[in-house]
């Protein structure tokens, strides 16, 4: 183990450069956030992930955000275990009827100010599962959504871009 740790010290890091976020996108996010929230959140966000019915493809890519290539914590973004510690809910999947209450309760347990990010085509528009008796619809049919990251599943770099946008917006003003 010691050898691997030592090697890690001298190897070139694999971590990606931070993706750039367009100014206009930032303005829009900042405007939605409001001054009070900005002051409170500062440059760090705690994220709670909620699978509201996904096929688990989106989860795999959210997981990838934590690997050394994307290393999401260097931006002040942290996945937390409880919604009570969270500023942001990242929600995936078409919301199933069976998960609706779980999602609503998670949202209720998250202290304000809070943001909802709908991750993936299912969360954005219910995807291929739209016509089912068992799905409610996109996340916005249940919760107010602040940011949509499309893709099936969205690549980690696209998610990183969206989340950095949130951080930047929260730091403005």
């Amino acid at each position: 183990m010691r050898r691997m740790l030592l090697e890690g010290l001298f190897r070139r890091p694999v971590t990606e450069e931070a993706p750039a976020v367009a100014d206009a996108e930032l303005e829009e996010l900042a405007a939605r956030l409001g001054a009070v929230a900005r002051a409170r959140l500062g440059r760090s966000l705690s994220i709670r992930e909620v699978d509201a019915g996904s096929c688990n493809g989106c989860e795999l890519e959210i997981h990838a955000l934590n690997n050394s290539y994307y290393d999401v914590e260097r931006f002040g973004l942290r996945f937390v275990a409880s919604p009570r510690h969270a500023d942001v809910l990242m929600v995936t999947g078409p919301v199933t009827a069976n998960m609706r209450e779980g999602l609503e309760r998670t949202y209720a347990a998250t202290p304000a100010p809070k943001w909802v990010v709908a991750v993936g085509d299912c969360a954005a528009g219910c995807g291929v599962f739209r016509k089912s008796y068992a799905t409610i619809g996109s996340v916005s049919a249940v919760l107010p959504v602040d940011l949509v990251i499309p893709g099936c599943p969205p690549e980690p770099i696209a998610m990183l871009k969206g989340l950095i946008g949130l951080i930047e917006a929260s730091a403005r003003g």
Binding site: D51, G53, S54, G93, P94, T96, N98, M99, G102, V128, F129, K131, S132, Y133, A134, T135
Partner: peptide, 11 residues
């Protein structure tokens, strides 16, 4: 279980 039931057979 059953929380992520999406009605796939029906779809």
């Amino acid at each position: 279980l059953g929380y992520v039931h999406k009605g796939i057979e029906g779809l």
